[in-house]
Computed example of a mutant assay.
Amino acid sequence: MVNNPIPTDLPSESRKAARILQAFIDPATAKGVDNVIPPNILANCKGLAILTVIKAGFVWSGRAGSGLVVARLADGTWSAPSCIGTASVGFGGQIGAEMTDFVIVLNSTSAVKAFSLGGNVTLGGNLSVAAGPYGRNAEGNIAVGHVAPIYSYSKTSGLFVGVSIEGSAIIERKDANAKFYGRKVSAKELLSGTVPPPREADSLYRALNLRADNYRSGSVNRGPPPPVPSRSKGTYAVAMFDFDGEQAGDLPFRKGDLIRVTKQSENQNDWWEGECNQQTGSFPANYVKLN
């Protein structure tokens, strides 16, 4: 599916970001586990910027795109998203067009802070950008203390070659944020956790929480492995987020609902089964807190 680089509203940007991220963490989509973003990169990052950019031109070229940025909060959850965009003009002996999806991994608090201050963020210079490592073998090859502030991952279709996000100016889309959140709201408020995460971004949070480390040996079905029976049938959990369910057999609930867990695993990144509001079904276990 080709993603839309034209700026849209926050719910649409969230769904697009979820699709893009899934393409970088799903071994089936990425054509093998050695082509996904390594699990430890996502597990330790401080935030992510996800966007689609189109570049086209004949001698003169232009680049434009849109997406959003989210930050990991102190408790391990994710912030409300902030809409972002990018645009630039270039000159040179070039002709063609291409569409690129980017996942920009923010590895440091300073990288997240750069997106929190408002105005433009120019990638490169003091906030250096490096091509992110891929696959299973990357985990052992990343030296502790030598991680770049920003890793860039991209998937491109088109005629241009060697596209890079470095040197691009990324702007905060204040109008889109204000329209969605119902008031003027700064990126700093959103990325610091002051504003609660909206349910309209649920698909993005699903993709963020069900990271690549939920896949096993490149075998992919519907996300994580199926749940195994719990040792205790009397386990209860409280929902920390809204979950609407995305397919038949899912168990929908709202934040604060009490769920009786009927099947669970040792890993809370798996799918469990339970009962809530006179319904039964499967749900992402990292959306709940055990009582």
Rank of each mutant, 00 (worst) to 15 (best):
P5W: 11
P7Q: 05
S12V: 14
S12D: 09
R19H: 08
L21P: 04
A23S: 12
A23N: 10
F24Y: 09
I25C: 05
A28W: 10
T29A: 14
I41S: 05
L51T: 00
F58E: 04
G62A: 13
A64K: 13
W78E: 04
S79C: 00
S79K: 03
P81H: 03
C83E: 02
I84M: 03
G85Q: 07
A87T: 00
F91V: 08
F102D: 04
L106I: 09
S110L: 12
V112N: 07
V112R: 01
V121R: 06
V121M: 02
G124P: 00
N126G: 13
A130Q: 01
G132F: 08
P133Q: 08
G135A: 05
A138M: 00
A138V: 00
N141S: 11
A143I: 12
A143W: 12
V144G: 15
A148Y: 13
A148D: 13
S154N: 10
S154M: 13
G158M: 11
G158N: 09
F160N: 05
A176R: 04
K184H: 12
S186G: 09
A207F: 01
G218L: 12
S219G: 08
S219N: 11
S232V: 15
M240H: 05
A248P: 15
D250I: 10
F253G: 00
E273M: 15
Q279W: 06
S282F: 15
N286P: 03
N286V: 04
V288Y: 00
